[in-house]
Amino acid sequence: MGAVAAKLEKKQFQHGDVIMEVRNLTKYFPVRLSFIQSLRTDDPPVLKAVDDVSFDVYKGEVLGIVGESGCGKTTLARTILRLTDATSGAVALEDVDIMKLNPLEMKNLRRKMQVIFQDPYESMNPRMDVQTIISEPLRIQGLARTVHEARDVVSSVLADVEMIPPEEYMSRYPHELSGGQRQRVAVARALALDPDFIVADEPVSMLDVSIRGEVLNLMLNLSREKGVTFVYITHDLATARHICDRIAVMYLGKIVEMGTAEEVIRNPLHPYTTALIGAVFVPDPTHRGISEVLKGEIPSPVNPPSGCHLHPRCPYTMDICREAEPEFLLYEGTHQAACHRAKKARG
């Protein structure tokens, strides 16, 4: 356990270690209207999936982005990878603004940034064997012309994801692998190009709990041993607390709180984070009690509430919450939050 404990030691990050800067990023989706409706309105409604989000990602960290479904976390992931174009704002990977690159430059940059998708059953071609799946990015990027040329790389990344001996797995097809093994192949595929930056979008939510640990610990090991940066998108605050260095909490397209995992979980500043932590069930019958849960469900992002988006559900709503949008302020350490009540408490 000594080695694992050492890996869990919190990393200290210097400001110079930023690998990705996200500034005022917005992604709006148009809402479909009927022809008559479109004639009647001058200002067509939009769905604000990501609404003015700014943050930094540090080199070698595991950053968790946590929120309920519909909060915009997957859209955020797709936008920072430029799998979809942003409405406005900037995303810089190692000081290169990826929003301004042409398709060829973007293709070259994709070597540095990779993605792991949620569903290991859907994200792999069932007619390709493991070897072909993993070497595909190498062929697309022109680093290997045939599957055989890529063999050494495939073998080494399979070893990296602890599928040993690699030869045994190379010629298997996805249906011959268990869910956990498939997701490890997905990680191996992301590693094949030796990227610096990997976005993992709910990588374990489709897996049985008993094997989630495999994939999560693998991500943690890779970040510590190879210095790969991970952005871990999840709805599960409990796993985020255990593998992330920092956590950002999203609600209705905005980051409402951000800080180290300890800061956010031990001392949440935003009532939404508090409620999210309270809603996580503890696997221990001697600690019973489902604490205060917010009423209702997440409102539609097409017409979000005024002021602070949480105010209709928040137990501490003040007049100002209905009127003004709270600023995203820095509190102690690296702990940031957007809440009028937290600001008032600080004075």
């Binding site: 694992v4 640990g213 610990n217 943690l220 409990a238 255990h242 593998i243 300890e262 996580v280 503890v282």
Partner: peptide
């Protein structure tokens, strides 16, 4: 994983 426990490997 127990959210309230000390940070540990999953």
């Amino acid at each position: 994983p127990n959210i309230h426990a000390e940070r540990s490997a999953v």
